[in-house]
Amino acid sequence: MVLRQPCLRGRPLSTGQGHWIGAAPSPEFAGGTAAHADAACLAALDGAGLAAELVCTHTDRAARVAALTLSARLAEPPDDRHLADLARRLGGAAVRPGAAEAASGAASGAEAAARAAASARAGEDGRCVRFPGQDALTGVVAAGRIAAESAIDRVAGVGVAVHPDALVDTRDFLRPVFRGGALVLLVEPAAGGLLRPAEIEHPHACCGGH
């Protein structure tokens, strides 16, 4: 079952609103775990003075080596100075789609950055690292509350129905994804009859000599 409670949120789908930017960090920008890269990306956005209320990571597969890209929705239109600062912090490119003159960084990076912004704005792709309502969703919360009180449009279970009363152990780490125009939090059964997000912050580190 898919949970959908748009009436409780009292506002339309979150994607189309606001001012979108895209960015493409250099390959050296952030290694390590996804959570580590998330933190570095958020720090770069905040450090550049861009008040991003919704931030997504993307995987750009246009080149042989897949690359991390970002999209962010801002409450105010960004000025070029802030975009340039973001590009510098990422060692890459930052763009405001539709405003070619506002691109900072290498051309190929700018194209990847523009793809990220476009796909998030359309609600087609993006792993959401920051979103409205995120801070209040800590610990164990009811699935219905997640959809009602945050930008997440629905909570979907892997192989299980999600009742609004079902409890989700957020583990203080939520990474909903854009899919088909909606921001979806995928959850799965966890111990103790709870649900937990399909993406967790610290999966067992697979080790090797690299």
Binding site: A66, G159, E199, P203, H204
Partner: peptide, 21 residues
């Protein structure tokens, strides 16, 4: 230790869905 989720080098066709992970 099968507790991961898609990363940069993952095959897009393996993305978890409501029917399977």
């Amino acid at each position: 230790y099968y507790e991961s989720s898609p990363g940069q080098d993952s095959f897009p066709g393996y993305a978890p869905t409501e029917s399977e992970n």
